[in-house]
Simulated assay, not measured.
Amino acid sequence: MNVQKSFSEGVNESSGSLYLVATPIGNLEDITFRAIRTLKEVQLIAAEDTRQTRKLLTHFEINTRIVSYHEHNKRASGPELIRLLLDGQSIALVSDAGLPAISDPGADLVKEAVENNIAIIPIPGANAALSALIMSGLPTERFLFAGFPPRERKSLTKWLQGFRAQQETLLFYESPHRISKTLGALLENLGDRSIACVRELTKRHEEAVRGRVSECIEWFAEHPPLGEFCIVVEGAGGANVIGQQSEEAWWSELDIEAHVAHYEEQYDRKEAIKKAALDRGLPKRDVYNEVNR
């Protein structure tokens, strides 16, 4: 059992506090007054990339000592940071951009701090995933942040299929050189859902590409993707074309064989299977296996 009262009088007298400080995701004006004050007042700043963080500190004339804490040195740096916290020093943890401890090793440091009864105090601020969600035009009542997709195709397929029945809007990050491959896998495994591909948030070239997965694939084939992306995907059963409420699918009372047979009146069998799979949000091979049993 661990109960933390962050601002009670007399709390944390024997140890310092770990501050999780949000930094701008692009526009420097998005940093808060509280974040600047905290970065000035702590004894130490632990940064994912010290070079990137030094630019921010220089801009705001912050002279606090900075040390490195990232995925490759966390086993060595983590225990030392915990020791300093237990000795009474307060430390600010920052990532390259946005909130720390989300899809980065800061989560491990937070876990260790909790286990050592060290106070953990969030300093809120900019976040790419939530910023992309609220501008996507997709449902915001329930959502699931999934981090970064796996790189290998087999793992990516398994990862995506795990979300096929997920009702919540899905959020994940992707790099520009992998987005086309990921969108292709998304179409194959989750169907032609409504999505928003948001890039360069808060920066000069901020852009949101909204539409069906197939439309976004075509767009990026003609407009090479640049910048880091946040992908927002309609949940299963949402059936919202962005900006419109869709009616019940015409094929809802058909089984898969009848669905494919309908398309075979106009197309060859391969194309009919493909179209039925897109309608149902199923992988083509699942539809193929069903009608060829």
Rank of each mutant, 00 (worst) to 15 (best):
A119G: 10
I273N: 03
A128G: 02
F60D: 06
E71V: 00
D268S: 04
V209C: 04
L170N: 08
N116H: 15
K158A: 15
R54K: 13
N292I: 00
H59Y: 15
P139A: 14
F145H: 01
L190C: 08
K111V: 07
F220P: 05
A128F: 09
G147V: 12
D104L: 05
G227L: 05
V291T: 13
E253I: 07
C216K: 01
E48K: 09
E247F: 07
V42Q: 12
E9A: 11
R212M: 04
I62Y: 02
T169Y: 09
P124A: 14
P149Y: 10
H223K: 13
T157F: 03
I118V: 15
V94K: 06
R293W: 01
E207W: 00
R54V: 04
E215C: 02
V21W: 06
L138E: 05
F172Y: 10
R37A: 14
I195H: 06
S90R: 11
P283T: 01
S95T: 14
L278S: 07
I179C: 08
A35D: 02
L81D: 06
G184A: 04
D279I: 04
V287G: 00
P149S: 09
E115V: 02
T157M: 08
R199N: 02
A208P: 00
E290Y: 04
V287F: 00
I120L: 08
H177V: 01
N2H: 12
T140G: 10
K158H: 11
S68L: 03
E290Q: 09
A276R: 07
T64S: 10
R34W: 01
V209L: 14
F163P: 10
V232C: 08
E207F: 04
S246Q: 13
V67S: 12
I31D: 10
F220D: 05
K270V: 10
L254K: 14
A97R: 05
G137M: 09
P283C: 01
T53I: 04
V11Q: 11
I31H: 07
H59A: 07
V94G: 06
F148G: 10
E174G: 08
W219C: 04
E48Y: 04
L28K: 09
C197Q: 02
E253L: 12
E271H: 08
V232I: 13
G10N: 05
E247N: 12
A258G: 15
A236S: 14
E228K: 01
L170K: 09
E112W: 10
L44Y: 10
L84F: 03
I273W: 00
F60K: 06
T140S: 15
R34C: 09
Q245M: 09
L86Q: 15
R51F: 02
A272Q: 02
A46G: 11
G237K: 06
N27M: 05
D96S: 08
N292W: 01
E115K: 14
N63M: 02
I134L: 14
V260P: 03
L254G: 00
L20H: 05
L226M: 11
I256G: 03
A47P: 03
E9K: 14
R83C: 02
T169E: 09
P105S: 05
T38N: 06
L226F: 05
H262N: 12
I102H: 08
V114P: 01
Y288H: 11
A261W: 00
